[in-house]
Structures are given as structure tokens and as C-alpha cells.
Design a protein around this nucleic acid. Structure first.
Lengths: 347, 347
DNA sequence: CCAGAAATTTAAAACGTTTGCAATTTTGCG
DNA sequence: CGCAAAATTGCAAACGTTTTAAATTTCTGG
């Protein structure tokens, strides 16, 4: 056991060729005689030769890795986002022979410091940045450094261009409004978060824009805000909306976890969904299919998005396009049973 | 923009020292004068010097990376396992300054071939292997190669020792049986999978052992098997168990997805849970808390396990212990509302 | 058969670090 | 002050690959 790894030098010695020739033969250079190329390929395959990544990276300046700094997460955060995202990234990368590096921020260190380290240690040829905040120092850093990256999400407005892929939350929330309006709803609620993330604006603005487009002055929108990760506060915020005399007949939540809280609290208050209250979420997490009566929501196909992000990033790395690459992905409505006609006798 | 990354040579030139001295100073060697060490540290910090990973790896033979080959997953697999697992690995690794490499198998390539590539390209100092199959060629390969690894899961029996961490499913299933027995149940059902994974044996054996321990000849156990990823077949299998005249009063499922299917089909058949049927799962996925009436299950704290796996692997890499490291983690019962007393009038 | 061209192969440098060993400087002490 | 010992610093090789420029071999046509 403990088989040694074979090097180019050993492979070359066995073939009675120089390492130069073997290296070129394996790279498929035309200038090496075809016969030699085949002989080398055969020997390499048989010896199980795999080039050493570090050596190759050192000389070529390309590591073949793409970096992702893992978002710092609370102690009991359970969701499928990360798993789907890295699966998609992996799928997108592998077809181009690249792999993924996951870097974690140690306790007390910022995501930015980890990002710096990944970039400056030469571990990665490019990085993916997720969960874009309203003011995001990571993008500023990468931009200044001129390092290839693709953002999953957008800044609200930016004086510089950058590569991004985002889910069209604005469109989805407009679609939700239109659907609910057509079902007779006029009084709407939005449950959103206090965390300074761009997506909350994009989605809320999409909702507001759809309301404005409709131009019906009888439409009313109430908004409550909760901290993102505080379950108790979330419940309180939802009840602030549910328990007042003139509650909305339709509530749109910024994402499914919030919508599920709405459904739970509605049930606790004796409100029937969708009889008394329509609820629509966003993300289509697994639990949404199980929570009665089944949450109507939007699916953003994270895995597919991640795959496209990988493609974009590899393009950026290889071709350094002059214009930024951008993609806006329209989420698809998953119509389950939590929405329905507006109740007759509403205040 | 496009700031260049600084090298040791440049740093040394600025300090009017040799590369050797700067390298040693940064590594904290005692032989370098304290004053020099401080001067170098100061300059390095100010210049934002970060050592080049490839160069360091090349000379030291240590990459500071731990590899994980992403399990090949079906197109619409949604669960939190992978996210929790990589989060935990990251947390465990970062405290020792290591990072994670995720390698994906390209279409048509086996996990083993990717594993080989990771190992032999020198990208990683050790690897984590998940989802251990009854006969697992990956472990055999790593063993033969003498490459550091930790398995998440076990082989059923092995003629060689290796490092593993596993969830004690056998204990959990025994606990489930005992609890249900004490609630009066005598007729049990087990829904399991046909995929050749060791955990199905361990859990089933744990259940059987608990039954044997009890020594009550009136206890009866029925078993149905379904393919792991075929939803239709899974439903059929469950119904084979539910729809016969003498169905069990308590069903234990190999994992939560199966248990949720049992609950859905029970509801469709007009069976009340837990009034007519008790159901217990395993894994505590998010949906289990939302599916009415709330699934009783076991939580294996994947994230915590992954953190320990990272610790174990780093120990294996650094110390090469003579004896294999093994850890058996006892999952905790999450008692929700899907289990209860056996119904009075059962066939 | 030979010059020149074309085809094929190779020597050597380079990538940025660590490290064994040697060189230099400083210190201690008679 | 001088000399050995201790403390400090530096030279150069090495890690395994790619690549530039040059060397060698083979081919072509007169």
C-alpha cells in the first residue's frame, strides 16, 4: 500500500523521452509526432498518471478552481439552498474541468477577509458571491482588484458594471399580485425582513409596480417587517398583521419560511387558508409542499441558476469579455392550494 | 485596478532581507531575531501579503485542502443534507486553517474516478467519503493507496480498519420500537429501500434486535422495500403495506421522506395519524415539522457530525494514528405528534 | 548524395515557496 | 582586544509542471 504518485519525470524516463515532449504530447500539441502522442497517452493511462495540480498552477497561473465563500449561518439553519447551489455549481464547472473551493469564515472573521485570502493566495481563478447586500464590500473589493467574479443577486444601483445572475423576484411578485387581484383581492399584506438585502427591495418594488400598473385606487397594501433569523419576532410581526380588525385578505411573504409562519399563525387564529386568507411565498422549499393546505409559491430553480453562474464565470475567466454578463431568471409559479378567491364579507 | 499580488521576493526586497529570512520570519522560526520577525510581520500585514498556495503546496507536499466528492444526485433532489454537511465540514476545517474542495463527477464518470483524480493530483491532503455502500470500492481504493480519509458511515463488516463516524441508527430504531411497544403496539411495519446502502441493514437490524430483546412472540414485523428515488414506486410500496386487511398499527420508515409518504398515503386512505396508525421517521428534515400532525423522528445533527469528521480527518492527516478513529453518534428523538397508543380494535 | 526545409525533440528557465547547509554577524569572556 | 560560540541571515536546491528558444533528426528535391 501507500502507492507513490507518478511524476512526469518518471513517466518520461520510462518512455525514454524528455519531460518536455511528454508534457506536450499529453497536452496534444500538433508538433509532437502522432505516433509519439499515442505512445505517451497509452503509457500515461496505464501508469495512471495525473498531473500535479500545484505544479501546474504555479507555472500556468491558473488553478482550475472557482471559489465560494460559505455564507456565515446561524446555528440551526436548515435549508436546501446551499446544497442545491453547490450541486449546480459543481455540475456547471465539471464540464469545463474546473472544481469548487469552499472557504469558511472562522469565528470572528468577516466573509470579506476570507474572500481576500482566497483571491490573493491564488487558490481560485474566479469566485462566486452570493447573498448580495444593499451595500456590499465584497463586490467593491473584487471590482478594485479586477478579479473575475459572478454575483448571485444584484446591487440596487451601481456606478460600475459587474457580472450577475439574479432571480426576477420583481416579476414574480407582480405576477402574484395580478393573480390575487383577479381573484378579487383588494387588501394586501407584505411580510418582509429588516436585513439589508437587495432582494427585499426588488420584490417589494415589483409588487408596488404591479399595483401602480393596475391603477385601482381601492387597492391597499400593508407591510410588516421582521428580523430575518428571529423566529419569535417573526411570529409577532405576522400577528401584528393578522390580528387587527381590518386584516388583509391576501398576504405575500418575502420567502417561504415567512409564508409558512403566516399559515401557522393563521391556523392558530382560526383563519382558514385559502378561505379567509390567501398566502403566497417565494422559493418553493420542500416544506411548502407539506404544510397544509400546500403553499403557493415561486420556484427559482437554484440548481439551474448555479449551473449558469458557473458557465458565466468560466466565460469571464477565459474570455474576459468587455461588457458585463448579466442574466435575469424568471421564477415559475408553483400553484398549490394556499390562494383562492377573496372572501365575500371582508371589511 | 487589477492590483498585482505581492510575492515573497518583492516583500523581501522592500525589507532588504533575503527571501529565506522573510519566509522564516513569517513562519515564526525562533532562529530569526525577534526584532526582525516583528518588522517582517508588520510589512507583510501592511502589504497584504498572502503566500501563494500552489508554491507552498508544491514544496511542502501539503495542500491544506480536504476533498469531498459530491454525491451524484437526481435532477430534482431537494434536501438539506449536503448544505448542512459542507457547512459543518467548513466549520471544522477552518479552525485548523484548512479548506474544502468539492469535486463533481461529470456525466458518465463514476465517483471513484473523480476520487482518484482528487487524490492523485495532490489537490487534497485527505478526503471525506459519504453514503457508504454495502460494497464500497472507494474505501478499498483509499485503503490500498494509504490515503487519509474518514468515512461518514460504515461498511457492514470489513477485513481492514478505517476511520469512520456514523449515526447510531440501530440504537434509534431500537428506541423507536421500545417506545411503540410500550404504547401497546404489537404489529409493526418497516418501510425500507432497495438501494444497497449499509445504513438500511444497521437500522433494520437495530429494530430486529430490539424485538428479540423484548422476547414477546406476539410481536410481528412486516417489511416493504421501495427503490430510493422512484416516487411512484415508493407510494405503491407504502400502499401494499397500508391496504391489506391486517395492516400494522405502527410503521417505522428508514428515513423521513418515506415516513412522509406513509403519512400522505394514510391520510388519503382515511387513516388518522396517530389515531389509527403511528409513524416514525429518521433524519428530522424540515418538512417533518410541517407535515400534519408533525412527524416523530430522530435528529442526527449532520452539521455537528460533519464538524467532528473534519476534526478526525485533520488528526489523521497530521498524526497518522496507528489505530483507526471511530465515532458512533446517538441521534436524539424528536417527539412530535405522529405516534401514539395502539388503537383498541385492531385486527 | 547533399543542402535546406520541415518535422520532431530537448535543454533550461521559470513559477513562489520551503529548507538544509553555509556564511556572516554579534555576543560573551578571558 | 581576540577568539570561540551563539545568534542571525543568506545561498541554492528542490517541489512538478509549462514554455521559450534551440538543437537534433528526418524528409524533400535537385
Amino acid at each position: 500500500m501507500t502507492t507513490r504518485v507518478i511524476t512526469l519525470k518518471e513517466l518520461a524516463a520510462g518512455l525514454d523521452l524528455s519531460i518536455t515532449t511528454v508534457s506536450r504530447a499529453l497536452a496534444g500539441h500538433e508538433q509532437i509526432a502522432l505516433k509519439t502522442r499515442e505512445r505517451v497517452a497509452q503509457a500515461a493511462r496505464q501508469a495512471g498518471y495525473v498531473p500535479n495540480t500545484a505544479a501546474r498552477t504555479l507555472v500556468s497561473g491558473r488553478s482550475g478552481f472557482v471559489g465560494l465563500v460559505l455564507p456565515i449561518r446561524g446555528p440551526n439553519l436548515v435549508d436546501s439552498f446551499l446544497g442545491e447551489f453547490v450541486t449546480g455549481l459543481g455540475e456547471g464547472l465539471v464540464s469545463h474541468g474546473a472544481d469548487l473551493i469552499l472557504a469558511t469564515a472562522a469565528f470572528g472573521h468577516s466573509e470579506l477577509s476570507v474572500l481576500r485570502h482566497v483571491v490573493e493566495s491564488g487558490r481560485a481563478d474566479g469566485v462566486v458571491v452570493t447573498r448580495i447586500a444593499e451595500v456590499d464590500e465584497r463586490l467593491a473589493y473584487l471590482r478594485e482588484r479586477g478579479f473575475p467574479f459572478v454575483a448571485h443577486g444584484r446591487l440596487l444601483d451601481s456606478e460600475f458594471g459587474y457580472n450577475w445572475l439574479d432571480t426576477d423576484g420583481a416579476h414574480a411578485f407582480g405576477e402574484a399580485f395580478d393573480m390575487l387581484y383577479d381573484l378579487g383581492h383588494r387588501h394586501f399584506g407584505l411580510v418582509t425582513i429588516s436585513e439589508l438585502m437587495t432582494f427585499r427591495h426588488l420584490r417589494q418594488d415589483g409588487l408596488a409596480a404591479a399595483i401602480a400598473r393596475r391603477g385601482d385606487p381601492s387597492v391597499r397594501l400593508d407591510v410588516v417587517t421582521a428580523p430575518r433569523f428571529d423566529h419569535e419576532a417573526r411570529i409577532q410581526a405576522v400577528n401584528r398583521m393578522l390580528q387587527r380588525p381590518d386584516r388583509p385578505t391576501a398576504i405575500v411573504a418575502l420567502f417561504d419560511e415567512l409564508a409558512l409562519t403566516v399559515m401557522e399563525e393563521a391556523a392558530r387564529a382560526g383563519l382558514g387558508v385559502p378561505r379567509d386568507l390567501s398566502v403566497i411565498g417565494f422559493d418553493n422549499i420542500a416544506a411548502s409542499g407539506y404544510a397544509p393546505p400546500g403553499l403557493t409559491t415561486f420556484d427559482a430553480s437554484i440548481r439551474q441558476c448555479a449551473r449558469e453562474i458557473a458557465d458565466m464565470l468560466l466565460t469571464v475567466i477565459a474570455e474576459k469579455p468587455a461588457e458585463p454578463l448579466t442574466r435575469l431568471i424568471r421564477p415559475t409559479l408553483v400553484a398549490r392550494a394556499s390562494h383562492g378567491p377573496a372572501p365575500r364579507t371582508t371589511s
